[in-house]
Design a protein around this nucleic acid. Structure first.
Lengths: 212, 212
DNA sequence: CTTTTAACACCTAGGTGTAAAATT
DNA sequence: AATTTTACACCTAGGTGTTAAAAG
């Protein structure tokens, strides 16, 4: 399924006339398995997992390749990224394990040599800058553990409009800005939450999350 | 609107590791305006038009750029091409005049220099091979002039399924292999009609229509 | 008169959470 | 008991020909 909210970033500092690929992947935050403790409303460690020897799949942004000028002029949205827990997936989706913590990464790849878009299965050795943001960490689930998340989805995702209850109160989303439990079809939307995202990005970062 | 049936081609003779763009445009067959004479079931010249000084818009196949190997392994479909009669169109659609004859062209563009995909508004001076096929010529309309065309559309286009009449006879499509009247959302589908398409393509053509 | 436009019902295609069933 | 899978109603998004109105 898709991520929601989706990862969206703005880029600056690129060379306007140079060509770039922009890609996303998702890497484990740790090697722990988690469970959600309902009465204390928090995720707790529930075991260990071995994430080694797993190379994360790369999602190439569909606008790639594109000039730096064009990349910088628009908000770069990864709303078509799909996640799965099926390790045998053959549709190119990003493979994750449920009940684990992950963080999305965004890669800006300068087109130096001429690699085939379809051939970029792994990151090149050179000409890549990688960025990530603390506030986009999430926990994967197959069923929601937290009523607040369900409400966030239903209120914000246009495809869930059928579950909206016009009579109920809004504003329940406050207080979810930091971290919140997650299921495969999820990611944080910087824009939707208005975070300023200094996060884990490197200092001379040409990538910032959109604050629009 | 979209073309239907859509232009579909197979390519051979490319260098497997080289990168190519593949694009389509639509050019006038002549400078005549046509009208459909119903009682004789044919298009007749109804006046003159000046097609000069109009540079046709280029539709870059969304898979571009891509290696020759990948291009040759698949049927290249232009089913997302959109046509319009609005000369002020700002959505990048191909602009045509109604009641005129046109033919689609397919361009294979070797990626020698590094041009931006978004910057290809017109064809490069070098490294381009252009192909077209006699049997894909068509006449633009805003309303169907011919009942056979209407039936072809309804029978073949999945989006028109709502107009299909399960009780009626099939096989009315025979005899439409050569030319048939057309409206903007149309093009010939080589594959659907099983044409062999020696057409107007150049002799050492790496592009042939698909006969599947 | 001919041709074009716009609103529409009816489709395809696919993204939601739900709830029950299946799995572990 | 916890987690995952599946079928489903309900959406978004957009591609059909039709029809009546509008435009020329």
């Amino acid at each position: 399924r898709r991520m929601f909210p989706s990862v969206r970033v703005k880029v600056k500092g690129l060379e306007p006339l140079k060509q770039y690929y922009i890609a996303m992947d998702v890497v484990p935050v740790d090697s722990k398995r988690y469970r959600y403790v309902y009465h204390s409303s928090q995720w707790m460690v529930a075991g260990n997992t071995d994430h080694s020897c797993i190379t994360p799949r790369l999602y190439i942004h569909p606008d790639s390749p594109c000039s730096g000028e064009t990349w910088m002029r628009q908000i770069i949205s990864f709303d078509r990224v799909k996640l799965t827990n099926n390790e045998m997936d053959d549709k190119g989706h990003i493979i994750l394990q449920s009940m684990h913590k992950y963080k999305p990464r965004v890669h800006v790849i300068a087109q130096d040599s001429r690699f085939d878009l379809a051939q970029i299965q792994s990151l090149p050795a050179e000409g890549v800058q990688t960025f990530f943001f603390q506030e986009t960490e999430f926990t994967t689930v197959t069923a929601y553990q937290n009523q607040q998340i369900t409400k966030l989805k239903i209120d914000r995702n246009p495809f869930a409009k059928g579950f909206r209850d016009p009579g109920r109160n809004r504003g329940v989303l406050d207080g979810l800005l930091e971290t919140y439990p997650w299921r495969p079809p999820i990611s944080l939307d910087f824009k939707a939450f208005g975070s300023d995202s200094q996060g884990g990005s490197s200092s001379s970062s040409p990538v910032t999350s959109s604050g629009g």
